[in-house]
């Protein structure tokens, strides 16, 4: 039985002013998927993510969560929907004037009625999950890039979100840290059943964690493919998709399977 459709993107067109970044995007994400948004640099991956999390209004089309429109809904309904998301940004985007515990605590203070001790307890727990036990009272500037990303993930998980969004989780990380982050994402999906949406162009990550994807192309400004990235790599008819996923080593003619 196919898993339920959790997120659907329908006829989405994204533009900055007159400049269209991507048009006619259509894909669905099932509950529990680790969905990869991939494509070359500057093709609009992050813009698509921003449209999905409510930071950038699309010019046409809509994103549907559990069948309900996101942008077409009212402001307050959109706020409600956003509360089900957790987002980690490229550089972590931790609030630099607050410690890691305060970063996580701010979200909890906003949406829960926990007292200070309870908030601190939850923050400690989330930091432990991402392997940062003992770093509660560090400021973001005092920890490394990889730790910032993990702390950003801890903050994104503060409210036990249904959907986790990642913007370039492994960018700027050494291979081992990137691998650990990938493992963490898989672990969270398996243990919490979270739907995960990842923007990345790191092939190692794509194949390690992704089970569904959309491939955006910068030249034609639309999606070329959607589906399991491994299947796309091995058998997609479009040369550009195979070539990207095989790191530029794809033969022009597709080999008979």
């Amino acid at each position: 039985m196919p898993a339920a459709e959790h997120i659907a993107v329908r006829d989405l067109t994204l533009a900055y002013g007159d400049f269209v970044v991507q048009r006619n995007l259509n894909f669905s994400i099932r509950r529990g998927d680790i969905f990869i948004i991939m494509g070359g640099s500057g093709c609009g991956k992050s813009t698509l993510l921003r449209a999905m999390i409510g930071l950038k209004r699309p010019d046409r089309g809509d994103v549907y969560y559990d069948g309900r429109p996101f942008w077409d809904a009212g402001e307050s309904e959109r706020e409600q929907t956003k509360r089900r998301f957790g987002t980690t940004f490229q550089a972590g985007a931790l609030w630099s004037s607050m410690t890691l515990a305060e970063n996580i605590g701010l979200v909890l203070r906003q949406y829960t009625d926990l007292d200070e001790a309870g908030i601190r307890e939850v923050a400690r727990c989330k930091l432990m999950l991402v392997g940062l036990a003992g770093f509660e009272d560090y400021y973001p500037s005092e920890i490394s890039g990889g730790m910032k990303k993990r702390a950003g993930l801890a903050r994104a998980m503060a409210l036990d979100p249904e959907i986790l969004f990642f913007d370039e989780p492994s960018a700027g990380l050494d291979p081992l840290s990137a691998r650990r982050l990938d493992d963490l994402i898989l672990e969270l999906r398996d243990s919490l059943g979270t739907t995960v949406v990842v923007v990345t162009h790191e092939l190692a990550s794509i194949f390690a964690i992704g089970n569904n994807s959309v491939f955006l192309d910068a030249d034609s400004r639309t999606q070329l493919a959607t589906g399991d990235p491994r299947a796309l790599r091995d058998g997609h008819p479009d040369f550009r998709v195979r070539n990207f996923l095989q790191r530029g080593a794809a033969p022009r003619e597709q080999q008979p399977a």
């Binding site: 409510g54 706020e79 956003k82 985007a93 630099s96 701010l106 949406y111």
Partner: peptide, 15 residues
């Protein structure tokens, strides 16, 4: 904070 996407982080968390 804008450059570091900290403002986006606030907005997505509904603050």
């Amino acid at each position: 904070m804008k450059v570091n996407e900290e403002i986006d982080a606030l907005t997505t968390l509904g603050i």
